[in-house]
Write a protein that binds this DNA or RNA. Structure first.
Length: 299
DNA sequence: GCGGTAATAT
DNA sequence: CATATTACCG
């Protein structure tokens, strides 16, 4: 029954938007870049919520189809850090999904609903939801969703920036309205001495790049892009454009392309590029990429 | 700057 | 191992 979503090759109408890349670790400046799966059947509302989440520097993947949401949730792999799901249909599939295999989904799931009945709230909270937000949702509530991940983070040995907590506490009461984006980097000045800021070594570890995980989904998009391009346009830049996945860099694509492109030694004097792409198209790793489901690297 | 390749790093 | 980065070259 769940199998239905688990292995589906996902041809059912694409996502509303692109999936974020698939990092395997939180970044140094924690709340930023949090990968949020956002589901709501109301496209308009979906967009509103998305905007807010993005203002908080979260990486949002929207979805307005239940089936798709289920699929993404099941194939969470390392796609998302947290999910915000609309509980439109009180006794719908999502509830069954979460209550049945909720334990297999290792990311916090926040339920949103207009139903403010105690029964509904209770039911969800008892069956796996980590929180329940009643619509209309306050931006501030979206802003603080990262709180469900601090423990997990610290288990990974990452220190949560104090600022995050400070900010959360400081702005508790008022106006978050729409633009409450604070600069992620701030420091306490104690070293007065000729104000040396060390502009050089300011490696705050805040700018860590996340490793892209080429899972079925991304690889699928990659393949689609490659196959949809003319044989002479199978180059990183165009593939990237066609994939249309923000947060993917040209280098990411180039690396992936290279990795999956056998080298044609000799005889590449003339139309080398065409030859290469021809090979690429035939030997790129197909969607069956889901072998070793191992954890992140120790790096 | 971009693309391809190989080597090397993480 | 998978992915990123760098050096070199056209």
């Amino acid at each position: 029954m769940l199998q239905k979503w688990k292995a589906s090759s996902d041809q059912s109408g694409g996502p509303d938007r692109d999936l974020p890349n698939s990092p395997d670790m939180f970044s140094g400046n924690f709340p930023e870049g949090l990968r949020v799966l956002l589901f709501d059947e109301d496209r308009h509302y979906l967009h509103i919520l998305e905007k807010h989440l993005e203002e908080f520097q979260y990486e949002v993947t929207t979805c307005h189809e239940e089936e798709r949401a289920m699929y993404l949730l099941c194939n969470h792999r390392n796609m998302f850090d947290i999910a915000i799901m609309e509980a439109h249909n009180l006794e719908g599939k999502i509830f069954r999904l979460i209550s049945e295999i909720g334990s297999e989904i290792d990311i916090p799931i926040i339920i949103t609903s207009q139903d403010d009945s105690r029964e509904s709230v209770t039911k969800w909270m008892r069956n796996g939801a980590c929180d329940y937000l009643i619509k209309p949702i306050r931006p501030e509530d979206l802003r603080l969703i990262y709180k469900y991940l601090v423990k997990k983070m610290e288990l990974r040995g990452i220190t949560v920036a104090e600022e995050a907590e400070e900010k959360a506490a400081a702005e508790k009461s008022s106006s978050v309205g729409d633009s409450t984006i604070r600069s992620p980097n701030r420091r306490k000045r104690n070293m007065l001495q000729t104000d040396e800021e060390d502009p050089d070594h300011n490696r705050d570890s805040a700018t860590k790049k996340r490793r892209v995980v080429w899972d079925d989904y991304l690889n699928g998009k990659f393949l689609d892009a490659v196959n949809s391009l003319g044989n002479n346009d199978v180059v990183p830049k165009k593939i990237l454009e066609r994939m249309n996945v923000s947060s993917l860099t040209r280098e990411n694509v180039a690396s992936h392309l290279q990795r999956n492109t056998p080298v044609a030694h000799h005889d590449r004097s003339q139309d080398a590029s065409r030859f290469r792409t021809e090979i690429a198209k035939m030997s790129l790793i197909p969607l069956t990429y889901a072998h070793s489901a191992r954890g992140p690297h120790p790096f």
